[in-house]
Each structure stands twice: as structure tokens, then as C-alpha cells.
Amino acid sequence: MVDETPIDDTKTRISEYSRRCADSFTRETRMEEPTKESEPRITTDSLSMSYGEFKALEDITVQVPRRSITAIIGPSGCGKSSLLRCFNRMNDLVEGCRVTGEVKLDGEDIYAPGYDVIQLRRTVGMVFQRPNPFPKTVYDNVAYGPRLSGVKDKERLNRVVEESLKKAALWEEVKGKLKGSAMNLSGGQQQRLCIARVLAVEPEVILLDEPCSALDPVATQRVEDLLAELKERYTMVIVTHNMQQAARVSDFTAFVMIENQGEPGKVVEFGDTNHMFTNPVDERTERYITGRFG
């Protein structure tokens, strides 16, 4: 399914990649890069994760293809959010959390010693379960990331804010109240603002942790439409407990579950979404997606 890449090739690719990262305004050209298209953006190999004594995930091997949406589904507590948080090392923040195995972003092991976590999190953005805008203005929310990386020029900030809000399909609704508090927006608008805030950092991958679970159906619909648009440019991984959502928005699906209480979560099946939902290979997948447990 995936082409084997010689090591040297990988190395040049990495250095070229980091050079491009340095200049955040070469997105368009980077997106046109044809040679990397067929290779997955994120790969894990025998990834295991534990919180202290408790093993949450075991032997996870998945590949996240570029410019597509990969859904992680599974019953509550199976570790799907934990898996997602391995991709931008947000698990580092949890005391006693340990990750073994490999997680590679564009072929580079993100858990290697000395790896720049700050840069990783700029490349791999994250949207959370509950909309969590800062209690600042709409403008300051979106400008947060660029300002952190030292952008001070007003013109440039204005441009980034406008572009990001447009990409997040929020511009028309908030362009008159950029200086108003983000807390006054509706839940759905807040979540799209959070997406805009992530986009402003110019990421390449966006992780979404049940982004619609706190939204009503109309707001959910808008976010899903937005994801479909963003797929053209970004690699996305979405954790969802909503099977219909996974079926609607994703191209690939990983089904994670825990066999017995206290055991770690494992990937039962991983593959093309349409295929998995119409013709699951594993019996447990079938039982889950037809709603017989979970």
C-alpha cells in the first residue's frame, strides 16, 4: 500500500521539509509538491502508551494519508483520544505518561530525543472536544499563534486573521465583531474560531478530538462541511464517537477497542472508510458499527 522509501531519500525529504517549515508563507508551493503525495503523513509502528501502571494503548500501527480525513472510532475509554494526543505529544503534559514504539511525521520520529516539540505542535494543530477560545477578542484569538512566533506587523496579522477566518468559514459571520469577545459567539462559531486559530499557525496536520460533541446538529453540519473543504489542503485526524460522522466525513477509519476491562486499547481494523462501513473484515468492527455494543 505504501511505497518503500530509501533512507537517503527520507533524509533529504526531512531537511527539505524543515527548510520549508521555516518559511510559513510557502504553503501553496509546498502543497503542489507531487513526490510526497503517495506517502503517509503520519505513521505509527508498534506504538504503546501507558499512564503509570495502566497500559492505555498497545501495538498501534496505523498510517495517516495526506490530504484526507482519518477517523478514529471506538467505544468510550478505548484510548482513541490518547492515541490522537500521541501525534502532537500532548500526552507529554500528563504526569507518568510513557510512550514506546514509533510515531513518525513525514518520516521523522517525533519521540526522538531532542525533537522540537514546539515546532511539532505548530505543524500538527489540535481542535478540542469543547470549544475553548481564549477569553479575548475574536481577533486576538486568531492572532494568538502568529504573535507567539513573533509576528508583530499589523498588516500581516490582519491578513492572517482574515485568511484564517475565511478558511474556517467564519469570516462573514464575525467580520463586523473582530474586536468583540470570542465568548459572545455561539458554540458552533466558537469551535470554528478554534479551527481558525489553529489554521493561523499554518499547520499541515489538524487533529480533532470529538470536535462536534458539544455542538447542535446545525453547527455540527457546518463544521463537517468545513472539514470537507479543508481536506483539500490539510491532513486531518478526527476522533469521534459518532459512527455516522465517521462515515460522513472520513476517508479512512481506525477502529480501536478494548477486549476486556483493564486491557489496553488496540486497533482492530484500519482501512478505507467506505469499505469498513459496508464490508468490515473483523466481526467486532461489524458489531460495533451496527450498534450492537459500545
Binding site: M126, N132, F134
Partner: peptide, 25 residues
């Protein structure tokens, strides 16, 4: 807690998070 996570997930350092997200909030 989501506030802190939002900031850190955007590549903010701990100090930047304190200075620009938590203290203002």
C-alpha cells in the same frame, strides 16, 4: 484546563502560555 491545552497545542511554551493565555484570563 482547556485554555492551557489550547495554548500549548498551538506550540506555545509554558511561559508563553502563562503570560499570554492564563494571566490575561
Amino acid at each position: 484546563h482547556e485554555l492551557e491545552e489550547a495554548s500549548l497545542a498551538m506550540g506555545a511554551t509554558r511561559w508563553q502560555t502563562i503570560r499570554h493565555a492564563l494571566l490575561p484570563a
